[in-house]
């Protein structure tokens, strides 16, 4: 079930994506540390959209598997795509002046992390955190 959608166009939308993540995870009853992990991941990935693709969309969904409930968040853009996902997932690797902690760091915070990207077509990242 879709819980919310945030369009990323402006810098301010990164803040809105964070606020949305905060409210939804609180409503779903995630513990404080998990809320923080999720909000932080949303901030990183929304910033990636704004920085590299200029615009995109963040979709928040509730997911279920057996008895467990969780939140799945998709980050979809039609930006330049990632040349080497392998490099992007390496800690310490960064194409700009960043610290290269972004993607591998987000992966560590989440239970599920999937990235797919095609050059000049865009990038999609899906993350899931189970309760």
């Amino acid at each position: 079930m879709i819980l919310g959608v945030v369009e990323i166009f402006h810098e301010k939308d990164i803040v809105i994506a964070r606020q949305t993540a905060r409210e939804l995870t609180k409503d779903m009853g995630f513990g404080l540390v998990d809320q923080t992990r999720i909000v932080t991941a949303v901030s990183e990935l929304s910033r990636n959209i704004f920085k590299y693709a200029k615009s995109g969309r963040v979709i928040f969904e509730s997911v279920e598997s057996g008895k467990s409930r969780g939140i799945s968040i998709s980050f979809i853009d039609k930006g330049p795509g990632i040349e080497s996902i392998e490099n992007a997932m390496k800690e310490g690797f960064s194409t700009d002046k960043g610290m290269g902690l972004g993607l591998p760091g987000v992966k560590k915070l989440m239970d599920y992390f999937k990235i797919s990207s095609e050059l000049e077509k865009g990038t999609t990242v899906v993350i899931i955190k189970w309760k």
Binding site: L32, V33, T36, E91, M99, L101, G105, K108, L109
Partner: peptide
């Protein structure tokens, strides 16, 4: 706060 300390260390920062 503790939740932020946990998240930062997990991030590797």
């Amino acid at each position: 706060k503790p939740n932020i300390a946990i998240t930062l260390i997990e991030l590797g920062f």
